[in-house]
Amino acid sequence: MAETQVTKPKSFQEIILRLQTYWASKGCAVLQPYDMEVGAGTFHPATTLRALGSKPWAAAYVQPSRRPTDGRYGENPNRLQHYYQYQVLIKPSPPDLQELYLGSLEAIGIDMALHDIRFVEDDWESPTLGAWGLGWEVWCDGMEVSQFTYFQQVGGHDCHPVSGELTYGLERLAMYVLGIDHVMEMPFNDPGAPIALSYGDVFRQTEEEYSRHNFDAADTERLLRHFEDAEAECQSILEHPATDPKTGKRIVMAHPAYDQCIKASHIFNLLDARGVISVTERQAYIGRVRALAKLCADAFVQTEAGGQQPEVAS
């Protein structure tokens, strides 16, 4: 481990910037967030789909994530319905992934000589994505700061080679590093800046608005229809023949179909927050989203990015 003394970051955004710089220096493509509502960074196609197939991949990105049921009107010190995850996916998983990961903690100002970092068993599973992997939650002084997973299966497909996935819960990690007790009090930019903004300045109002919307206002009838529409759209996109009649090229529309899967998943989360899904129905909805994820995975592995050799035009 490098002995260089790393300065403490001053703000939420500085931690993000340091992670971006760190992973860029380790050879990752620094991508941008996916432009859809997702429950976690894993849903970004740069993780879900790119973990499939044989092509090497290395990407890092921030992903705004939404968990409607976690809304607390901005009052809870730790819970938010909208939060950020930092996501790294490297395929094949390099042998020194643990060391690389620990390096990223140093980069954001965690002094390895003073803290107690532990890898505690945590098998990851996403029933909606039909995905699972083995790994740990990483503890820093008893606090979970990341998830570390070796993907074994995604969308029902075995991962060959295996991707290593790192997920940092950015608010929680930043609060720990910055020594903040309430998320809304965390400096978003440099507290010495002419216009210093806290996390609350940026998000308190939206947390309130979305909490009210998610729990009480979202129209469940319409949402149920949207769910069905997204499901039908996903399926019908994939029913198109692989060869595009207009261009004559082979174009499997895995990504557009997967967008609909993401949409269905988010709508399901909203319905769940509205409390209209019973325990039993819950399983059925999860199964329907999983079926879509599986269809998309099946489609993706038929594409070039999914490891398929480009077809020689016949």
Binding site: P77, N78, D111, A113, L114, H115, D116, R118, C140, D141, G142, M143, Y176, D181
Partner: peptide, 28 residues
């Protein structure tokens, strides 16, 4: 709590961190 290492500050940072995590859990 049982840490996995010795530190120059005799575990003060580790203990403070653990205490903080516990406080967050218990306030929930």
């Amino acid at each position: 709590t049982v840490a996995n290492r010795e530190t120059a500050d005799h575990g003060a940072t580790i203990l403070a961190g653990n205490q903080k995590v516990l406080a967050a859990r218990l306030s929930d």
